[in-house]
Design a binder for these strands. Structure first.
Lengths: 107, 107
DNA sequence: TTATAATATCGTAATATTGCAATATAACAA
DNA sequence: TTGTTATATTGCAATATTACGATATTATAA
């Protein structure tokens, strides 16, 4: 126990869950919000922006990257991290599909 | 350590993160998907539908309820759980706001 | 009352996550 | 080369999550 039983669920469900999970942390939401407002984003900006240590931020960036929510391209000594709108759309479509089904609310 | 440093983030960010977190598990996505297709939903249906033990499903339902993503009303011996579209909208709006900001993609 | 059925709670083992100091790496500058 | 700056990785302690058996609760039925 302690491990999520992902084997028993469809790939689609697992993908959605891991995307949501990647966004399920305040630091990662803050990172995403900051990325939205920046033309380019390098990690140092985040270290100055967020009240977390550099290794912690690096770790959160890695998780967002693993989930595919952000992309990073090396740019000299720094790195440009950006949102991957395709993945955002996957979540957005899922949520939208819930909203447009009226029978979903019965309580 | 081991605890999320929520104190250092805004309430808005923490609320978004906890909603995303609540959806960040395949069983909970499956529950939400199942709720979407049902007129009414009682827990037994889920126990038959999902390959998880009853206490596990009950626990996941509780987490979704705590986050406000579903609502439950007692109906005799069983319980009718339903989606709370308001919370879904909170997430949906956040994601939509990311999509409509073109400067977000620079990589 | 006694049974039964539906759901919740408790307790706990296994595992995952979080945060960070220390350290490593990689690119550029002097 | 030697520094310096930006980011990543390692290791680890503290805490959280997951899954489920056992058990409790609650509502109705017999």
């Amino acid at each position: 126990m302690g491990t999520t039983k992902s084997e028993v669920f469809s790939e689609e469900i697992n993908e959605l869950a891991s995307l949501f999970k990647a966004m399920g942390h305040p630091a990662r939401i803050a990172i995403i919000q900051f990325l939205r407002t920046q033309e380019k984003c390098i990690c140092t900006d985040l270290v100055n922006e967020l009240p977390l240590a550099q290794p912690t931020i690096s770790q959160h960036l890695k998780e967002l990257k693993n989930a595919g929510i952000i992309q990073g391209s090396v740019s000299g000594t720094s790195i440009c991290y950006c949102l991957n709108l395709e993945k955002i759309s996957v979540l957005d479509s899922f949520l939208a599909s819930l909203k447009y089904d009226q029978s979903a609310t019965c309580c």
